[in-house]
Structures are given as structure tokens and as C-alpha cells.
Design a protein around this nucleic acid. Structure first.
Lengths: 211, 211, 211, 211
DNA sequence: TCGTAACCGAGACGGTACGTCTGGTCTTTTT
DNA sequence: AAAAAGACCAGACGTACCGTCTCGGTTACGA
């Protein structure tokens, strides 16, 4: 498994509360900020959202935002993450082909919702400009998803559908790479035909032992 | 036929000179702006570059920049494009496998140069926030490259290496999708093993008639 | 004469336009800012006035304020100055006693207007915290007034009412010192009895040749 | 009798402890706050000092400051007052002229110390913006000093140097008004010549029975 | 050849958001 | 209940850029 760290505890790109002394960070404040962020992400997208507006919408001082999140990107990441991750299926059909189809279908369904797709694209954009966000992105978004998907591949190995030497990283990149490519460049549609053709091609390579 | 201003009239994201009357746009001014842009792209990256700074560096008024380019993204696109495109090889080895290897190797070599890689990532980021730039991006970057590469695939069809019904779009996405994925997410390296494994997998799918 | 510099040209605490190149500072903008400042000074006083509000009221960008005035104090000084100075009489009655009475009565009448008095007190307060403003204050407020008043004293010398060796600085401090003292400390009223008693005392000292 | 809580009930601008219940205010805390205030007044002056910094320097919570003093001004007043007042001489030479000289010399000596002069100027500035502080200022600074000085004048009446109808308020304003004027406006120096000339002028007016 | 339209560099324009700071209050745990 | 600590909301600070406009001045076309 590559670059796991399986999330938990590392908490990149999110500020920690210091010692136990003094007034603790208020949960209500945090919730209000995340709700306002989610709303504004839906209304305007990440690029057009400002921290100033988030604070105003949440009826919170700007400092209460900056106390928790160092940048707009990490805030948006938090607002996006739990919602997105829990909507990503981890199928277990007993067949690698069907598992891959299920994963890709779930992903495409999610990103075709305008809000989700736009926010995901906005976050990837932000990741390119903010190295700290990039770390958080890999640790809290990419790694957990790949861990889940890697486990799914591992099950196929255990079933004997795949050789143990399978290049899991490549396999997942062959699945998600073309999908992100179309999401970000928009040169071709993310439709059902694409999903099926892509999985068919991957399965052919798998069956030929070439992955 | 490669990007010979193939769409003379389209010219997305670049301002045109109006009627013939009045003083024409100065070529020296344009050159100075593009040079300053190239320098700043190398020094700071697209995100940290400002049009104000480009104008100052080029010893040019801000209006002279806006007269030619409507946004930072289109300016950076112009500064990036010719240089990048002419460094992308269009191999013709007589073998699809070797052509794919050549293309991918050329792309990886280019984006592993820090300046080029950072600028490409910055441009893709900008494309996500600016719909007009997205149009220009597809017309002036994505389409020309895919046209070139499509021709290469077509030659393989003519040689009989591929069936005429080959899904060219999918084939190219299988080649470039994983590469862009690693460039943008940084979860796994863009090394020689990746290149070879990826092409091997694609060729296996091709040989199985699954693309 | 002490510390004259007779204003003109020195222009402390006020930004100058640089070279003649580029768009010149707009007079309308300047006027709008000064009007908004005058209004807010009257409504809230200097301490409660913010540059943000001045800019908003004048329908002007904050930068247009900062481009001209380096601080709230210098801005308020400009808004206050011309108005206040032109309301300060320079009597010429032919009698030193009556001239002093006229000057002091004019000053008291001005500072007893709530807006003027509050602004003057606010400016003196600001002068204590901002050394640059203090320079401007001396050059553009104190010095011009004292130059005027010094001329008035000089006329009394020429009339033979005062010896040529008169200590003009002390004479003026004896006149204005107690007045500012009561304005700033508020321990005793600025009424007509004060004015008359003060001038009577000064004239007694003058007549005894003690100033 | 100097400031022995002379007005036990008055206590403007200083918070009182409520009922006797609960933990009493710690004296150590109060002392630490006043010491930190004195240090910061000397280091930066009143304008640049913040309550936040005072609390940090005193290793005390901000609330412990606000529990005792309602504003920065009253805190500074307390830190300044006893020190300043006890350094103001109340001479008793048997001669009004020499008493006035002694008082003025003591005052000038005090305010020419950079820290004392700056703090006094800062307090007078603060008094202009904070009406509650203005009350405290008059009750705890101006009134006690004028009471002392009034007693001194009264002794001169008893000695027969002054008529009983002397205008004590005006006399003191003639002494201190010009001095504060020069302190606050800085247009002329507070030197020995000033002291002597001023007292000479006042004595001339006194001798002429004009005060 | 002359007028004029559109260019040129410079920089001010009205806006907006930034991230920081302070003010005064409130909420913890600890003494 | 007061203590220290520090989070709370609020909002001003001064800066940086945005994209447009205005200035005085310069080309180069077309009448």
C-alpha cells in the first residue's frame, strides 16, 4: 500500500487547540462556520467565496475562523470532506469488474451534482497554489480514498481475480485518472458509456496480467 | 496538421485589434509583456504573479496588457503555449507502443522541469475558476494536442495495429489521465516505471481489442 | 519673531503629488473627502471617526484617502484648518487692549461651538500621540496664528504702546495659555469674566513693563 | 495634606469592591498590574500601550484588569498619579514670588523627564476622548493640585502680599496655562528664562492689583 | 500634409478582501 | 468567588490588486 498513514490523528492543515487552559474552542462556533461555508460553496463556489463572508454569514468574528483554519482552502476541505467521502461507495460485489463499476459510478454521480463537482474542481485548483493545502489534501482526501479502494483491490487478490503482484497504484490511477482528466479539462463527457468503456479496458489489461 | 492557427477566426481568450485606424498595437510592447510574464511565471508561479507586476516588469502601462489579454490566465496561456507545444514530440516510430512511450516520455520530461510543471498546474487551476479561460484552454491547448495525438492513433489504424472502431478519446485519456492525475495530486511519482507500466497496460487492453 | 516659516510651501503632514506623470489627483475626490471628514467630525468627533467611514461617506476608495493623507490626524487637520483660521479675527482697533480682547473673544466664541471645540480638543489630543502630526500642527496651525498675532503685537510696538523688546512669545502664551488650559482641563469656565480679567491682568503686566 | 484619599467617597473612574463575599481582590495582582503599566508607559507611552499587553506583562488575565479599572486611561492615571503628585513641591518660602518660582520649577523639572512629560501629555490627550476619565482627571489630578496651590495663595493673602479678593483661579491659570500650552504645542521651550519671565509678569500684574 | 483615432507609459480611480489587531466580554479550569 | 487563560463577536487597520479611466504625448493611417 502506498502512502497510507490511514488518516487518523495526523491532521494536516487544521489548527490544534493548545494547552487545556483558558476557554476552549466553542463547538457551536465551529459548526456555524462549517455550515456557512457549505452554503457559500454551493452558492458561489470556492473561488468566489471569501472568509469575510463566511464569518459574516456564521455571525462569527473573522478571528474565530482564522483561529481554526489557516486558509480558505483548508476550511473548504473540512466542509467538503465528510460529506463527500461518505457518499463514495465501497462496493463489495464479489467481482472486481462490478466493484470498479460501482466505485466509478458513485464518483461520477457525485461530481455531476453541480455543487459537488464545482467544489471538487475548486479544491483541486486551490491545491495547486497552496502547498500546505496540498499536504492536507493528500493526507485527508487522497490517502483515505485510496486506502479504501486499495482494500477492495486486495479482496480481489484474495479471491484470486488478481495476481498478488498487482500494481494497485497504477490500477487506481487508470480508473480515476481519466475521470479527473475529463472533470478538469471538460474535453469529453463523463457519461455512462465512458464508465463502461473505461472499466472494460481496465479489465482487459487486468485479464492479460498487464497491471 | 498541427496548430497552424487551425481556427483562424476562433481565437478564444485573446483580444483582437479593431479597425485599421489609429496607431496599431506595438509589437515590441507585446514581446516585452510576454517576456516579463515568462520570467515571473518562472520566479513565482501563476498564482503569485500579478498583472500589475507584469506591467511594471515590462515597463508598460497596465492598460497595454488589458488591451491585449482579458485576464491573467489568457496571458499566461500565451506565454506558456508555444513553448510547451513545440516541446511535445509527435513520434512516428512505426509502432503504437513506441509512439505512446515517446509521447508520454516527452510530456513527463517537460512537466518535471519545475517551471513548466508549476505553470501547467497553475493554468489548470486557473481554468477551474475562469470559464472564459476554460474555453481558450480547450481550443488552444487541449484540442490541438489531441488532434496531433489523434493523427498518431490514426496512423496505427492505417498500419493495422488498431481496429478502425478504436475509441481514440478513451485511449488518450488512458494515457494522459493517469499522468495528469499524478501531476495534480502528487500522490505517486511520475517516474520511468510509471511510464512503462502505464503503456504496457494500455497496449494489453489494445491487443485485447478492449479500446 | 519666533518659529515663523510663515507656512507657505512647507506642507508638513500632507502627501505631495510626485512627478507630473500619470493621472493627476482629482480635485473632486479631494473635495469629497474633506466634506465627508467635516461632516463626521461634527457628528462623532475625531476619536470616533474612522478613515473607513470617511471613504464610504465620500464614495471614494480607502486608497484615495491614504494617497493624500498619511493619518487620520492630518486629514482632520486639513478639514479643520481653513475653516477655523478664517474665523479667527485679527483685530486692528488701534489699542492693544482692545485687540487682545477681540482676539480672545473670537477664539472663545469659536471653541464654544460644540463641533469646533470638540474637534480642536481632539486634534490637540491626536497631536500628543502622533509626532508627524505634531510637526504639521506647529507648521500649519500654531505658526500661522502666532505670525498673525505677532504682527498685531508689532503694530502696538510701532504705536509706542509696547517697548520694542517686548517678549511676544510670552505675551501670546499669557493670552492663549490660560484659555487652552480651561478648554482642555475643564476646571473653570470660558466666560466673559474670564476674558476680561485675563486681558486686564496682561495689560497690567504690560503697563508695568514686565513683558 | 496630599491626596490622602481626601475625597473618600468620590472615587471617580476607579472600581470599588462590592460585598465582602467571595475571594477578595488580591493585592499582589493590583501591584503587578500597576508595575506593568508604569513600565509600559515608560517604554511606549500611553497611546501605544494596550490593556492586553499590560495583562500579559503582569501575568494576569485581562479580566483582572477590567475588574479594577474601567479603561486604559484610568489605569494610567493611577500609575501616574501618586508618583507625579508627590514630586510636585508645595514651597513655603514666605514670598509669593519665590513660591510661584518653586512650583513652576518643580513642574517643569518633572515634565522635562521624557517619561513623565510623555505620560502627562498622553493622559491629557486621553482626557479629551473619554468623558469619564475627564471627570476622574478633574477630581483626582486637577482639583488636588489646585487645592494645594490655592492654600499657598491663601498664605500670601494672610501675609498681606495679596488682597483677599484675589482671583485665585486666574492666578493659577496664568501660571500653569502657559506652561501646559508649551508642553502640548511645543512651539517654544520650557526653559529657565520662560519660568522667570512668566513669574515676573504675573508678579507685575499682582503688584498692580490686576489679579 | 494634416487630422485624428488609437496607441503609449504612468498612475489615480472606486472597490473589495486580505490577515492582524484591539476592545471589552464570556467561559473554562484552578485556587 | 476570584484567579489566569484564552476564546468570543465586532470591526478598524493599512496594504495589495483588481480592472477602468485620465493624463500628456506619440504614431501611422486615410482623407
Amino acid at each position: 500500500m502506498v502512502h497510507d498513514e490511514s488518516a487518523a490523528g495526523t491532521s494536516v492543515g487544521r489548527r490544534e487547540q493548545g494547552s487545556g487552559r483558558g476557554r476552549p474552542l466553542s463547538e457551536g462556533t465551529e459548526r456555524a462556520i462549517l455550515e456557512a461555508t457549505t452554503e457559500l460553496l454551493a452558492e458561489r463556489g470556492l473561488a468566489a467565496m471569501t472568509i469575510e463572508e463566511v464569518a459574516a454569514r456564521a455571525r462569527v468574528g473573522k478571528a474565530s475562523v482564522y483561529r481554526r483554519w489557516p486558509s480558505k482552502g483548508t476550511l473548504a476541505l473540512d466542509a467538503f470532506l465528510s460529506d463527500f467521502l461518505e457518499r463514495q461507495p465501497v462496493p463489495d460485489t464479489g467481482s472486481l469488474r462490478d466493484d470498479l463499476l460501482g466505485m466509478l459510478r458513485g464518483w461520477v454521480r457525485a461530481v455531476r451534482q453541480p455543487t459537488t463537482g464545482r467544489t471538487l474542481r475548486g479544491l483541486i485548483a486551490e491545491v495547486q497554489r497552496d502547498p500546505e493545502l496540498a499536504d492536507a489534501w493528500r493526507e485527508r482526501f487522497v490517502a483515505p480514498l485510496r486506502a479504501r479502494h486499495g482494500a477492495l483491490v486486495q479482496r480481489a487478490v484474495e479471491r484470486g481475480e488478481l495476481a498478488p503482484e498487482v500494481n494497485t497504484g497504477l490500477l487506481l490511477d487508470l480508473l480515476y485518472g481519466p475521470a479527473y482528466h475529463r472533470l478538469l479539462h471538460g474535453h469529453l463527457p463523463l457519461n455512462d458509456a465512458f464508465i463502461e468503456d473505461l472499466v472494460a479496458a481496465i479489465m482487459a489489461a487486468v485479464d492479460a496480467g498487464a497491471i
